[in-house]
Structures are given as structure tokens and as C-alpha cells.
Design a binder for these strands. Structure first.
Lengths: 336, 336
DNA sequence: TTGAAAGCGATACCAA
DNA sequence: TTGGTATCGCTTTCAA
């Protein structure tokens, strides 16, 4: 293309300059070049540019499941946090599969990406990330920590979240027995939250209902089945439940509904506050983690790492959306 | 790196060959090279490879909103349809904004992507895609058609979907009056479906309730508000509603619930059948469009276009998931 | 079987 | 202010 462009008597070098660096080129030449380039429909080849300049403008986003609304929101937040710098996002789903993740990470290294935002697959260890480290590609972890690794991580403040839900249920609603329902058993988030949960229950003398504190995959259907099983068993009901996330909570709500158990009998506070939470029946009280902000912050953090800056941004604090499922009364109905 | 690799006495060319093309290289040399490469942690530079070979292994996926579960599912389906060919997916959200879409498409052209899967932003016209055409980048459209353009499109079979819902409501449930609720007014899908809907209603002498056939954005909250407004007004209820998608339907269901209107009074059949549909209260009868299959098919179609093959795959036919919201009885409860 | 050299499309240095 | 030329990392003839 360059050669075509100097079909107006100039050298490629001049054209190259004229198309970017404004200085050092006669205003008139520049305009002529730009006009001609536009006329010919010239489009620079990013691959060549990258090869020559070592420029890196691609960010890898690696997640287990983009279908998860929180993940999708975070992805969008990240894209928003990056777009001004004309960064491009390479997305990959790992399906929580280590082999897949290995494959993907290798590809990203080959692509010479500027950095990687990683929501690690279950079972990810530091060795999995060795290649990235060797290639000196900055990595920011999202939500799930990786054992033995000191990578920067942006994550929801588990202790704070659990604290908010706990405080609301115990202090405001007077719950005496609690369960922490769902979440993948050996994944970071559940482990972290269970820890806070247990500590709080012990400190405030609240009874922990073990059966209702079982793990569950992030699926409404699976959660509903589990809740069904518990409701059909002799297990006593706790006063309230903190549910690992909204998707799981929707399954639980459905089960409670089928057993005609009202929020006053079993209060539910969930975590995430996705859009759907306000619209379920009963509507779902949920601790909002502001997933978009999470993604945006992670993006900024990665950018900071790229330019060697110190990162100073903080995550938006979680906050409780009070709705019906905890017994806080009816949902606000916005009718026009 | 190559230079480092021939620190074992060979030329870069030999190394390059040894690392891929098995023939023409002594078995022993090859092994030595590969061992050394592994030891040194050599990673080929995709940019250089692409530049030299003109190889293209990146596919652009451009969608308005990855947060939409159907879109997310389709994205995953596409990724699955592509992965064996070691293709990489560049994802971008346009937020249904034309300026954004222009920006993104330009980036994709610069990246020299092999092809683009595009779920066009509202208002996209053929001129928007001119650049892609000029760069001879194959495009496959997803779901929304682009006026004046003859690009191949993979889309849900709107007429068939509406037919299934209509038939179920009118023939099996005896509905005499119907509404087609929601969908973006000037977007392809709603227009297509409204057309089928009107034709069917006319043919079968079913009354079309105009007020209940209003457009609505794809948001449960907005849909609920609209339904609220209608329920609070003097508008008569139709016997049944075909709802544009599950997200909208969830909002509608919530509104009906708040007005204590049961499925027998207003039957609802929705479109999409996302996972959540089986778990709402009442559970949502929905025409499944198999979004993953949609994505996979689109991916295959694009691959076919890349290699100049004729595309022969067909889309999975839509099918109705009968649940409670149309009055088909209680949801199957899978209790262990 | 291996090596030398050209070239992919751009940038950047140094002269002119 | 412009042009010549080396270079980025790799593949690919063509000879040796």
C-alpha cells in the first residue's frame, strides 16, 4: 500500500511520517498524502506496525464462562476502562478447564499481548502462569486467587460483602441461625466467604446450619435441586440464608416458592445484584458488587502495570439492595 | 530468539524448519532443536508469522451487548465451532452504537482479521460495512439483517418461531386474542416476527391486541414497567402473549404476578429459552432457539466462507419448552 | 540436509 | 523537510 501511496512521487518514509507525526512534514505535503491515502483506501497493517515498534495494544481477557452475567458485566466494564487507549480485547472462555486455559494462555503469549486479565480456572496454580511470567506479560487476577502466586488481584471484598449481609440479617432482622448456601467448594470466593461467615457467626453467637451451608455450582437449576432436597429432608430451616450469588439464589427462591415458604420464614440475602434480582418473585435482596466497576478497575490496574505506574484506584464498596426476599417489604414499583 | 536458538550451531532457517515441517530435516537435528527451544522457552511471534505468511487466524466477533444471555451463548457456541482450527476470537461490544461499531470494525480491518461475525448495531446500513468489503474480509451476519446488503446471515427462523408459539397458544390453548410483546421497534427481529404474527392472526381470525403488541427494550425492568402501565390502564387483556424474549418475559411475569393474574387468565409464551426460563415463578414456556447452535453454525459458515467452500450446515429447528406460564401445568420438579 | 538471502509492511535513524 | 536503508521475527525459495 505504501508503494501505491508513493505513486504520487514521495518515498514510503515520507508517507509514513505524514500519516502520523505531524511535525517535520510540510503541512501541504501532509494533506496531499492524507488525501491520497484516503482516496486509495489505504489501511495500515497493525501486524507490521506491531512487529516494527514492539507496540502492544492487545489485552487478553480469560474467563471460565462469559455466560455468567457478572463476568459479562465485568468484561464490559473492562472494555470501557480500556477503550480510550485504543486497546483491543481478545476474549477466551476456558470453561473452567485447565487444559483449555493452558492452550489459551499460550496463544496469548504468542500474540505478544500487552497484558492479561485472568479469572483463573478452578485448580489453577502458579506453574500454569509460568509462561506468562517468563514472557514478562503483566497479569491481573480477577476474583479468584492463585495459590503460591503474588500476582495483583482485583476482587470483591469478600469479608465486607459477607459482613453486610450478616449484619442486615442478624441485626436488622434478628436472625439466630444462618446458612451460607452455594458456591464452588474449593474455589477462592466460597472459601474466603465461608471464613468470614464462620468468624462472624462465632463472634455473634449465631448458629451455623451446616446442611444449608453446602456448596453448589453456579446454576439456578442445580441450586433449586439442592434446596428441594434440603426442604424435603428433616433438616431444620435456618432463620436466614446468605446465598453465594444471584443465579443460585434464583434457584433457591424457586424452591422456597414451591414449598410455600415465605421470606419471613426463611430470609434470603444474595450476592451480586444482577439486573434480574429486582424482578424475581419475590424480588431478591442482594449485596451489589458492582461488577462493571470491578472490570473497569481491573482494566485500569492492568494499564497501570503496563506503564509501570502505581495503581491508586479503589473498588466501589459493596452495598445492599433491600428487596423482598429478606423480608424488607415490597419492591419499589416504578410505574409511569 | 531464533538467534539464541542457533546458539547450537545451526542457522535460523534450519531451526524454523525443524520446529514445524517434519520432512527435510534430520530426525536427530529436529529433536535437538526442539529440546533446545523448549529449554530456552522459545515462543514464536505470531505477528511476525502473520506478516510473513499472510496467515489469518483471528476472527472478529462484534455484538451490541455480550451481557445478553443469548448473545453470550452464541459467542460460546462460535468459539467452540472455531477452536479446532486454532482461531482466535477478538470480541467487541458496540452498545448498539454506530460510532462505536465503526471504530471497532476499523480496528478489525487493521488487524487483518480473517473474518467477522457481526450482530449489527441498530441502524447499520450497507455503507457501514464498506470498509470490510473493500478489504475483502468475509462477514457473516447474526440475527439482524442489514438493509441493502446481501451478506450471508445466520438467524433464528423468525417465522417458524412465531408459528410454534402461535400454534401452541391458539390451537392447544384456544386463545382468541393475542399480543406480540416487546422487542426493539425498528430492529429486524421484531419486524420479521410481527409480520409473521400479523399474517397468522389474520389467517386464523385471531384478534391482535395492539396495545399489548408494543415494542420494548430488552430489559426486564423496562418490560415490567410497560406491563404495569398496561395492566393499570383500561386496556383489555388478551388471552395470551407471545413475548419477544425471555428477559422481557421475566419482567412481564413479574408484573402479572403483582397484579395477581394467573397463566390461565393471560398465557405467556416467550422466545429464547435461556436457562433461567425453567426457574422463574411461574416457570416460563419458551420457544428455544438453541443459541449455542446459532453461534456454532455462524462460525462454521464463516469458516466455509474463508476457505471458499459451500456451506451446508443447517440450524437446529426451534422447539417449544412447555412450562407453567402458558398454562401447561406445573414444571417438572427434579428432586433427588 | 542445511545455509544464505530475500521479503512481508511498516518505522526510525541518519544523510542529503 | 525529505529519501535511503536497516530492522522487527519469521518463512521460503534456491544453492551448496
Amino acid at each position: 500500500m505504501q508503494t501505491v501511496a508513493d505513486a504520487l512521487g514521495l518515498s514510503r518514509a515520507t508517507v509514513s511520517l505524514a500519516l502520523r507525526d505531524a511535525s517535520k512534514i510540510a503541512e501541504e505535503t501532509r494533506l496531499r498524502v492524507q488525501a491520497e491515502a484516503a482516496r486509495l483506501g489505504y489501511i495500515p497493517n497493525r501486524n507490521a506496525v506491531r512487529l516494527r515498534t514492539q507496540q502492544r495494544n492487545v489485552i487478553g481477557l480469560v474467563v471460565p464462562d462469559i455466560t455468567n452475567p457478572v463476568v459479562a458485566e465485568a468484561a464490559i466494564g473492562m472494555q470501557m476502562g480500556l477503550e480510550d487507549r485504543s486497546m483491543i480485547v481478545l476474549l477466551s472462555n476456558t470453561f473452567d478447564d485447565l487444559t483449555m486455559q493452558r492452550h489459551v494462555l499460550r496463544q496469548l503469549v504468542e500474540e505478544q499481548v500487552a497484558g492479561v486479565l485472568l479469572l483463573p480456572a478452578l485448580g489453577t496454580t502458579a506453574v500454569e502462569l509460568e509462561r506468562l511470567r517468563a514472557a514478562r506479560i503483566p497479569v491481573v487476577l480477577l476474583n479468584r486467587a492463585v495459590p503460591e502466586s503474588d500476582l495483583p488481584i482485583v476482587h470483591v471484598l469478600d469479608a465486607e460483602i459477607v459482613g453486610i449481609a450478616f449484619e442486615h440479617l442478624v441485626v436488622e432482622h434478628g436472625a439466630q441461625s444462618l446458612g451460607y448456601f452455594g458456591g464452588i467448594g474449593d474455589a477462592g470466593p466460597r472459601i474466603q466467604r465461608m471464613e468470614s461467615f464462620s468468624r462472624l457467626c462465632a463472634a455473634e453467637d449465631v448458629r451455623v446450619m451446616e446442611a444449608w451451608s453446602a456448596p453448589s455450582p453456579s446454576s439456578a437449576i442445580a441450586a433449586r435441586e439442592l434446596a428441594h432436597r434440603l426442604l424435603g429432608s428433616a433438616e431444620p430451616l435456618p432463620d436466614a440464608l446468605i446465598v453465594h450469588n444471584d443465579i443460585i439464589a434464583i434457584g433457591v427462591l424457586r424452591a422456597l416458592n414451591e414449598f410455600s415458604i415465605s421470606p419471613s420464614e426463611l430470609r434470603v440475602v444474595s450476592i451480586d445484584d444482577v439486573e434480574l434480582a429486582s424482578i424475581t418473585t419475590p424480588s431478591l435482596s442482594s449485596v451489589s458488587i458492582h461488577p462493571r466497576d470491578l472490570g473497569r478497575t481491573a482494566g485500569h490496574r492492568l494499564l497501570a502495570a503496563l506503564s509501570g505506574e502505581v495503581f491508586d484506584g479503589a473498588l466501589e464498596a459493596p452495598s445492599l439492595a433491600r428487596r423482598e426476599s429478606c423480608g424488607c417489604g415490597s419492591a419499589p414499583v416504578a410505574v409511569g
